[in-house]
């Protein structure tokens, strides 16, 4: 595949939990280097979409391709290769509680590279200092704040130099200053390392600041109801609910209940 091809392709993907339809036949692409934001009201399936994109849940139908290879239908070495293309930051950080931050970041390097211990440690320290945690390498996850946990999780997700980072609600539960620092970090990483970001969030200030493109999911129709730049959607969307979402207005048509 060439550099200009989309890095992620979601093709007619349908997601279900048992009998309940969560996402109905979604199709979209994510371009290389983009900061791509998945939006929607509570319970519309944003995190579900993310978990399908990273291959945790198999879709009911359809396919997801990352760098040209299917996440859904690959096995063995091929799947390992697909997984190696991305890193994930979970909503809670999901740092391994029995290891300190340095060990957390070292773990993927230890498992997937032949680097010696001193090299692994240096790389892990680099990643941690990139997210501003150089002084906390020997802290356990339980000893640091929520914002730090999220940043450490980004450092761990970046350990194997992935092309894509998936972030699940990176700024949820953070104070505005910490959230803003995290946004700066995302923009820096995107510009300097040309990492593609796929972010689930509904923090409006953050969306305006970082998003190159957003898609918006609708809980009623289970489909994408908007796709574009946030400022354009706010001003020109045909859908009143989309406009209201960007303008933070309630009482809209088509709420997510």
């Amino acid at each position: 595949m060439s550099e200009s091809d989309p890095i992620i392709k979601v093709e007619n993907m349908t997601a279900r939990y048992g009998d309940r339809l969560v996402l109905d036949s979604l199709t979209f692409n994510v371009e290389r280097g983009e900061i791509f934001v998945i939006l929607g009201g509570s319970g519309c399936g944003k995190s579900t979409l993310l978990k399908h994109m990273i291959g945790l849940y198999p879709p009911a139908s359809g396919d997801i391709k990352i760098g040209g290879s299917s996440v859904v239908n690959s096995h063995g070495a091929e799947r390992d290769e697909v997984i190696r293309r991305f890193g994930v930051m979970y909503q809670s950080g999901a740092l391994f509680g029995s290891m300190n931050l340095l060990e957390n970041v070292c773990l993927p390097l230890e498992e997937f590279t032949d680097l010696k211990e001193d090299a692994r440690e240096l790389i892990a320290r680099m990643k941690l200092s990139l997210v501003g945690l150089a002084d906390y390498t020997h802290h356990m996850p339980a000893e640091i704040s929520g914002g730090m946990m999220k940043r450490a999780a980004i450092a761990r997700a970046m350990a194997l130099e992935p092309q894509i980072l998936f972030l699940d609600e990176p700024s949820a539960g953070l104070d505005p200053i910490t959230a803003d620092e995290l946004d700066e970090l995302i923009i820096d990483l995107s510009r300097t390392l040309n990492i593609t970001f796929v972010i689930v969030t509904h923090e409006l200030p953050s969306i305006y600041k970082i998003a190159d493109r957003v898609i918006m999911l609708d809980a009623k129709t289970k489909k994408i109801i908007a796709d574009g730049k946030p400022a354009e959607l706010r001003d020109t969307s045909d859908n009143p609910w989309v406009r209201n979402f960007f303008n933070r207005k309630g009482q809209a048509a088509g709420t997510d209940e």
């Binding site: 978990k51 809670s92 999901a94 740092l95 509680g97 773990l107 993927p108 498992e111």
Partner: peptide, 13 residues
Amino acid sequence: VNEEIDAFTTMGL
């Protein structure tokens, strides 16, 4: 519950 198991899986571990 903390998604740590998911983190292992998506790291390929």
